[in-house]
Design a protein around this nucleic acid. Structure first.
Length: 869
RNA sequence: GCCCAAGUGGUGGAAUUGGUAGACACGCUAUCUUGAGGGGGUAGUGACGGAAGUCGUGCCGGUUCGAGUCCGGCCUUGGGCACCA
């Protein structure tokens, strides 16, 4: 009999047209229905989708569709994180302007998303680079200024002295500007900051309530906030003998371990510390000046990550500080591993109890005094564990906690120190000296100073039609744009020409989706949808984005806009899709990254890569490391070809089947074929079933053993898939379970009335179980199965527990932990029965004969382990 | 350097609470299907061994009747480190 072939291109177009026509995914607020807000991190419109996008957005789509089938009112929006550096780079390269490039990319990517059949409410779409969006961000900022939550101070940037421009960290390669090749300098310029540190405690304690966030993310955030309790105390400059002159300079140091202060054998200042100039002795001056100058030119990341010998990373000032605990002087050093931005920029160094201090002391030949007794088997160097205080005068004999408390009290009593909580978290610098971003709404008046742009003058619109050469921001190059009037005195004033960090836009977009068209940042509708029930995005955002947007949510709450404390209830961080990188390094230091699709790879017998050539010219290219698919490394694999060849359902299915969502995935398209074959087999099996004609009602009372077994498989699978998608979010195992069931169903040949009824129940379950993952084929099959309601609105299949009851279970029998037999038993059998069954197996008794049974471990319905010696 | 993950057949991965290691796929081999095909079916596929069986989850050690799973130490790979997003 002729059958309709599986034609995904035709079928998917038809199903998608129907969704569009019915506005199936448009969400409206309905207080009578439980809501579910499912959000995937909004993409940067880089130009083309890569497999990382497909994976990310398919996960969100599967969850959305599943929740919808559970009967919830689901919102799944989509938009574009449209400001950012790549647009500027692309504009230079392609001789266009960032706006045009960005909007063209959005058009293209939207089409690709639609082709993949994601259930987005497109009516809420926006791009963050439009004034309709960023005006509210500007308004918020001016209010934060008035509240004192935004402030301006000097801060360092990477300065390219040739291009006369500020460089992003990414644009600095081995200390040189990526375009000019010039050695990058550090420059201190005034910039705007948001006081995220005011919220440090709440951002930290709030993590405890985020039960459905991955532990790894919470741990990273806790460490990032870095709350530490300790003491801050003053030390005075003294001479070699420990004599403190009246009026001598003092320096505050922060320590979490005041109990170890008797073991302080030196002290360290950050190179930028104001005291450095004051205390440096004549003999050390030259060395110190050179050291400070070089530290200034090194970025903080490089300073803390430098692997060079510690000997070179610090110098003696020649001065001494008076240790109030011992009454003795300690030498004062400066070292680049001490940062001015943390604590007081000065530390007491206790090499016996701190490994970094230990390494530094060894490198500089400084004494080491242990103040905590080490355990007998301790083989390390610095000891940071608990133990009894030694070499510590009046602290001797106390444990760490007690000694710390006593030392703290002593400092307070003496009036030289106090308890102090320090955070590693620093305020959020939001100024960028770039063009393609949201203009910072500030006016500088020579008389009145820095003022927020008045609300009735917002938005400050970023001109899009500019001549853009890339070296300098058109805002800064244009002498006219900045000219304005002071809102206070009316005199001539200038606008800020910096723009916001693009993390600003991605910090509140989730709320704006809930209030399309609102004449405010958000309106009451946001409180219907928020908090987001499920957020999906890459693990690379675990700290920065996810911290900033938690912070911003609290800012909006405190401005009375939102009622919830946290933006997101449940978070799924998907692993990255990684791929090989290929590149060519030009002689001038610049690098061209080559897409894997344009490269031919040579491999040895074991499949290991031995070389690679550019197909276009046949010449070798260099093989880089394996990295996440990204625009900057040009290693994204475009899903377009796969979609054209196999259809959206296959690509969606494979991206979910290839690995669990939170694991990183090294891309290879071998295996896509298997997903396509499964869908085609499904298509033919279901259409075969339909072609066999009408089905009688199921009567569970008259089923054969085989029919019962099929029903058990069916309902076991429904239970497993529901758990895998709903609770575990392991879509790969859900798919495997459906494949397994389909294999059973394909082998089940029973044309009797009840045989067909059992099959009908099973296929209808399969179609619904797969609908969130492969919605097009399932929508079509569902209709062909004679169902009126569209599968996207059909209730999720229910488990019939009665169908899952087994009359026999397989018990595993071990002897001394090794598998020796399997026996069939009635469920719930007791140990005696199990033992009897086991002992009737020759392969069991064989290993017990001549030995004494010492112990029997029995886990009912699972395992019996006989320990015999 | 610091913080967070991951490491299981030829490959992607499964094993959910410490209890049968390798589910489900890819690939490969054999075989069948009138020809062809990125078609379909069947069987096989961790290693060693004729077999019984032994070994086997990055490496070393430990806890346990029992460890891929827990603990200690290491190695490798990936992510983040505040201006890529």
């Amino acid at each position: 009999m002729d059958q309709t072939p599986y034609n995904p291109a035709e079928l998917e177009t038809r199903v998608q047209a129907r969704w569009d026509q019915d506005k199936t995914y448009q969400a409206t607020e309905d207080p009578g229905v439980e809501k579910f807000y499912c959000l995937s991190m909004l993409p940067y419109p880089s130009g083309a989708l890569h497999m990382g996008h497909v994976r990310n957005y398919t996960i969100g789509d599967v969850i959305s569709r599943y929740q919808r089938m559970l009967g919830k009112n689901v919102l799944q929006p989509m938009g574009w994180d449209a400001f950012g550096l790549p647009a500027e780079n692309a504009a230079i390269k392609n001789n266009t302007v960032p706006a045009r490039w960005t909007y063209a990319n959005i058009e293209h990517m939207r089409e690709q998303f639609q082709r993949l059949g994601f259930a987005y409410d497109w009516s809420r779409e926006f791009a963050t680079c439009t004034p309709e969006y960023y005006r509210w961000e500007q308004l918020m900022f001016t209010r934060l200024m008035k509240k004192g939550l935004a402030y301006r101070r000097n801060s360092e940037v990477n300065w390219d002295p040739v291009d006369q421009t500020v460089l992003a960290n990414e644009q600095v390669v081995d200390g040189r500007g990526w375009r000019s090749g010039a050695v990058v300098e550090r420059r201190s310029i005034p910039q705007w900051f948001l006081r995220i540190t005011n919220y440090a405690d709440e951002l930290l304690s709030g993590l405890d309530d985020l039960e459905q966030w991955p532990e790894a993310v919470k741990t990273m955030q806790r460490n990032w906030i870095g709350r530490s309790e300790g003491a801050e105390f003053e030390m005075s400059v003294c001479d070699r003998q420990g004599v403190v002159q009246p009026g001598a300079a003092t320096v505050g140091v922060f320590t979490t371990r005041p109990d170890t202060a008797f073991g302080m054998t030196y002290a360290v200042l950050a190179p930028e510390h104001p005291l450095v100039v004051e205390v440096t002795t004549e003999a050390c001056k030259e060395q110190i000046n050179a050291f400070v100058a070089s530290a200034r030119q090194t970025s903080e990341a490089d300073r803390t990550s430098a692997e060079g010998s510690l000997e070179k990373r610090g110098v003696n000032t020649g001065a001494f500080l008076f240790n109030p605990f011992t009454g003795k002087p300690v030498p004062l050093y400066i070292a680049d591993y001490v940062l001015m931005g943390y604590g007081t920029g000065a530390i007491m160094a206790v090499p016996g109890q701190d490994q970094r201090d230990w390494d530094f002391a060894k490198a500089h030949d400084l004494p080491i005094v242990r103040t905590v007794e080490t355990p007998a088997d301790f083989a390390g160097e610095a000891y940071t564990g608990d133990g009894v205080a030694i070499n510590s005068d009046w602290l001797n004999g106390l444990g760490v906690a007690a000694a710390r408390e006593k030392a703290m009290k002593w400092l307070e009593y003496k009036g030289i120190g106090e308890r102090k909580v320090n955070f590693r978290l620093r305020d959020w610098g939001v100024s960028r000296q770039r063009y393609w971003g949201c203009p910072i709404p500030v006016i500088y008046c020579p008389v009145c100073g820095a003022l927020p742009v008045p609300e009735d003058q917002l938005p400050v619109v970023l001109p899009e039609d500019v001549s853009f050469m890339g070296v300098q921001s058109p805002l800064k190059a244009d002498p006219e744009w900045r000219k304005t009037q002071c809102p206070q005195c009316g005199g001539a004033a200038e606008r800020e020409t910096d723009t916001f960090d693009t993390f600003m836009e991605s910090s509140w977009y989730f709320a704006r989706y809930c209030s399309p068209g609102a004449d405010a940042m958000v309106d009451e509708r946001a409180n219907y949808w928020l908090p987001v029930d499920q957020y999906v995005g890459g693990i690379e955002h675990a700290i920065l984005h996810l911290m900033y947007f938690r912070f911003y949510h609290k800012l909006m709450r405190d401005a009375g806009m939102l009622k919830s404390d946290e933006p997101v209830t449940r978070l799924l961080c998907q692993g990255m899709v990684v791929a090989e990188t290929f590149r060519r390094d030009a002689g001038d230091g610049s690098t061209t990254w080559i897409n894997p699709a344009d490269v031919e790879v040579e491999r040895d017998d074991k499949g290991k890569m031995t070389g690679a050539r550019l197909i276009a010219d046949g010449k070798p290219v260099e093989i880089g490391s394996i990295e996440k698919m990204s625009k900057s490394r040009n290693n994204g694999v475009d899903p377009r070809d796969l979609v054209e060849r196999y259809g959206a359902d296959t690509v969606r299915l494979f991206s979910m089947f290839a690995s669990p969502p939170d694991q990183s995935l090294e891309w290879s398209d071998s295996g896509v074929e298997g997903s396509f074959r499964f869908l085609r087999r499904l298509w033919f099996m279901v259409t075969d079933h339909i072609a066999a004609g009408p089905v009688e009602a199921l009567d569970t009372g008259i089923l054969t053993t085989e029919q019962k077994t099929i029903r058990r498989y069916t309902h076991d699978t429904i239970a497993k898939v529901s758990d895998d998608i709903g609770r575990r979010q392991t879509f790969n195992t859900a798919i495997a379970a459906v494949m397994e069931l389909s294999n059973h169903l394909g082998r089940f040949v029973d044309r009797s009335a009840q045989g067909r009824a059992v099959l009908d129940e099973a296929w209808k379950a399969v179609v619904r179980l797969m609908a969130p993952i492969t919605p097009h084929i399932c929508a079509t099959l569902w209709e062909m199965l004679g169902e009126q309601n569209s599968v996207v609105n059909t209730p999720w299949p229910e488990v019939d527990d009665a169908a899952r009851v087994r009359d026999q279970i397989t018990l595993v029998v071990q002897v001394n932990g090794k598998l020796r037999a399997r026996v069939e038993l009635a469920p719930g059998s007791d140990e005696e029965l199990a033992m009897a069954a086991a002992m009737s197996e020759q392969n069991v008794t064989k290993y017990i004969n001549g030995k004494t049974v010492r112990k029997v471990i029995y886990i009912p319905d699972r395992l019996l382990n006989i320990v015999a010696t």
